[in-house]
Design a protein around this nucleic acid. Structure first.
Lengths: 342, 342
DNA sequence: TTGTAGGCGTTATCAT
DNA sequence: ATGATAACGCCTACAA
């Protein structure tokens, strides 16, 4: 619409009676420019409302200063924190973000990959949809050696760097904690997902049982959508089990909460009848009563770390290949939902 | 790093022994291109792994097909829903999103505006930081007639379109509901903010009191940060009030929840002693006990509407000027926290 | 229907 | 230290 024409370096050059080349150098603070001319150029640019045209620049530099981000969804507290973290770092380093969400659909994820590829992002940060079981749709990037970093929801793959926490250990600690509180019939609720996050949490759970001579029963592993509704459904299963379970380790807080609410409605006492541990430290874990014991790790850290790694790599400051997996710290936060004795 | 060289229309032209211009037209499905050559071109493009260079294209078209988004933060369920909505529409229409968050700081907001301006976004969607009290930092856009649409957290201004709900009416209904439940000493918790969202909610509250001959007391209006901590702080104030209030209308769910938790800890009974209504239908409102009555409106709708308006405008399909404010629908969802009689 | 040629705003490589 | 000039990849009159 009313887009008035833009000021170009030629306009500045004309006004100052110098060449466009000099203006270009002045704007970039190129060392071999006379201090005086540089100041004149910068002042004129400011005054005339000049802004550099990123497209002309990118056309030459062949880099877009843009990072693509793919997340399964934005509405979870964890994921939105991650994105905030990414944005903070990217902004500071002068990178733009192209964000898209897959809504947990591999098809959409693939579309996003293609779209971001066509937009020529310099690199990609991604967290996978639940039903994504291989990384074939990322081949566009792998083939061209455009760096891709996966975070949290990752899959093993040689061509990529993964940023996550030690899910096996976290799950081990969570289960361990339940055992130490006296639980012996411990249910595990996990996602219908092929990502290692969930596989690792499940294996940590099993390992803890094993190490304490608590027998693993595969009926105790419930596969549900990891939201409140999935939790409610799991509660129905749990209510039918005989003997009744006395502990639940859930791979996600909201699901745990949905389960707790459903059980409470049936007058099951938490933690006396059954104790709970969740995962992710969602704000709602401090709202549910009793407050939910959970595994805490910072989304901001995940996002910032991922962005920093990628940008360092893009700047040639570091190589990615040598550290294929980055583990961030986490912490088990003990609250009432799992505290059976004082 | 190994960025292999890109295929250009010249490469395709050479291979097919035709001119680059024809290739260009073929790729755009320009009507006056022979069907046969077009097919050849598209096939060759596919086979050679051609992807159009958006920068060369933008350089000519002077449009970036990019929309800037500024939000105060991403971690609230509402805001992340809005962004999801925006992203969905933008994607479908072939627009990219440049997202930044102000962390509720006007200074950062101004930085983002400048950054997005320099990136030449075609338009802007923004929701303001709490302490933003004028739109001067958006002048860059206003002066160049680059469309800006504000949503939810808006400020009155002639140059912009606002997308929100009728906050006055929603607050009126919320307060009304408390009165109908028998509450007469109703506290209102609001933000230390100059946005009309909060002013309108406050005025709706006052109007409802007025219409029911309930006296307005300015001590009943508490200004707090709208998060759980702010709610806990408000609870302290409420506990000191004599006579004790019997209802609270909070401009935000999380704050309401923080307040409820703090009061419950002091053995105040909800809703018997004091009833609650919140705002936004955050998922946590179904976790707190008793479940929180709240005003529901869809973040997805807000985002999709905002994006659609902007894109229609950019496509010249509609004009923005004639409808300066768009009101979306909302609904009061009554739950136990405000239900004093059955 | 297709080809020629010029330009979009920068940057980089030469000279000067 | 500065200036001319040629890319960068695509689009679009205009001509053929």
């Amino acid at each position: 619409m009313g887009q008035s024409k833009e000021v170009t370096i030629y306009d500045i050059a004309r006004k100052l009676n110098i060449s466009a080349a000099t203006v270009s150098r002045g704007l970039q603070m190129h060392p071999c420019t006379a201090k005086k001319t540089m100041k004149k150029i910068l002042d004129a640019a400011e005054e005339m409302g000049y802004r550099t045209n990123p497209f002309a620049r990118n056309l030459i530099s062949r880099r877009t200063k843009t990072i693509g981000v793919i997340v399964p969804g934005l509405t979870s507290h964890f994921m939105s924190s991650v994105v905030e973290g990414i944005e903070r770092v990217a902004n500071k380093k002068g990178y733009n973000l192209l964000i898209s969400h897959s809504s947990e659909s591999t098809a959409k994820e693939a579309d996003s990959v293609k779209a971001l590829f066509n937009n020529r992002v310099d690199g990609l940060l991604a967290s996978l949809a639940h039903d994504t079981k291989d990384l074939a749709h990322f081949d566009l990037f792998f083939k061209k050696d455009i760096p891709v970093i996966f975070f949290d929801r990752v899959l093993e793959h040689e061509n990529s760097t993964n940023i996550l926490i030690d899910n096996h250990k976290a799950a081990y600690m969570a289960t361990n904690h339940l055992i130490s509180q006296g639980c012996r019939r411990i249910v595990h609720i996990t996602a219908p997902s092929l990502q290692s996050v969930y596989a690792d949490r499940c294996s940590g759970y099993k390992q803890a049982l094993l190490d304490h001579q608590v027998k693993f029963k595969k009926e105790y592993v419930l596969v549900e959508d990891l939201n409140m509704q999935g939790g409610a459904h799991a509660a129905e299963m749990i209510l039918k089990m005989r003997p009744a379970p006395d502990g639940v380790f859930v791979a996600n807080d909201l699901c745990a909460i949905g389960c707790m609410l459903a059980l409470k409605q049936k007058d099951v006492k938490i933690p006396q009848d059954i104790a709970f541990v969740g995962f992710n430290n969602d704000p709602a874990s401090k709202v549910i009563e009793p407050n939910l014991t959970t595994v805490d790790y910072s989304g901001h850290d995940v996002g910032e770390t991922a962005a920093r790694y990628l940008i360092n790599h893009l700047s040639g400051l570091s190589t990615i290949q040598d550290t294929n997996t980055v583990m961030l710290r986490f912490e088990l936060i003990v609250r009432e939902s799992s505290t059976r004795h004082k």
